[in-house]
Design a protein around this nucleic acid. Structure first.
Lengths: 145, 145
DNA sequence: AAAGATTGAAAATTCAATCTTC
DNA sequence: GAAGATTGAATTTTCAATCTTT
């Protein structure tokens, strides 16, 4: 009789990671879409800008944090700005760079999105895992970064 | 002193899931791109077709397995067929349906992709987790489906 | 030249139909 | 009418430049 090899277990982890990620993500994106809210990527941007406060954030710093390619960030910011949730301004210190500021409307939508978003997280994670399994999971996942 | 609430832990799980997934995925996609191989979605299709054997697979069954929307599957199959890795044929039993067959070239590329793919999995998972952590992780992730 | 940002064109994804067969 | 598949148009993503400032 054959034992499960170390090779197989890593494949199982990957398959599990893909399935779990896509299940939770689908649940979240469906909730957002039903509420007529923008996609999750907008939330990530708005949260970072809100955390940065009145000084704003440099665009390229945001890009590094969110692991977005230059053009990806640029086009994402274009759309969010067009929707009125952020402002892009030239940086005083460095003419090449941009400083990003969240608008009042941006703060409001971020809060509204969070209500739907966090409820979806509770539904798709909180209701499926025991507290101890959730804690164990969070601890192990950190090692994969 | 404040305890971590059950609410917070679920957020941590979600953040961990997103980060871990994207780290491993990035490693895999980078390896595939370096080797000039098609994206991962092609692999999933080819693997299913290879498993199905000489009888092939009905397209809509594949779509359900891979959780793809009708149009998404249709356009994916278009591209893979155009690359010569599968054939789409009308189903005898049901004129609405399609039977998919992997080609010889498809079998070959699937095998080549797997060599790169599995190596990337070992690097981004196997080298970061102990065997027991990997086993625990796989077990807990299944519950999130 | 390097860093930060932008853009045109191509490819992929999505939405909302539509088409064909049952 | 419903199931399976396709398609036109719109949006988003990607690649490969290009532009501006340091």
């Amino acid at each position: 009789m054959r034992m499960t090899s170390a090779l197989d277990i890593n494949e199982s982890v990957w398959v599990g990671l893909v399935r779990a990620h896509q299940a939770v993500l689908a649940s979240i994106e469906t909730s957002l879409k039903e509420a007529n809210f923008p996609p999750l990527s907008w939330y990530d941007v708005l949260l970072e800008l809100e955390r940065a406060g009145a000084d704003g954030t440099q665009a390229f710093v945001l890009g590094e944090k969110l692991l977005l390619p230059q053009y990806g960030l640029c086009r994402l910011l274009e759309r969010i700005e067009k929707a009125g949730y952020l402002k892009r301004t030239r940086c005083d210190k460095d003419g090449r760079a941009q400083v990003l500021l969240i608008t009042k409307a941006g703060v409001e939508i971020r809060q509204q999105i969070w209500e739907v978003y966090s409820a979806a997280i509770q539904r798709s994670i909180g209701q499926k895992l025991s507290l101890t399994d959730a804690e164990t999971l969070a601890k192990i996942l950190v090692q994969l970064k």
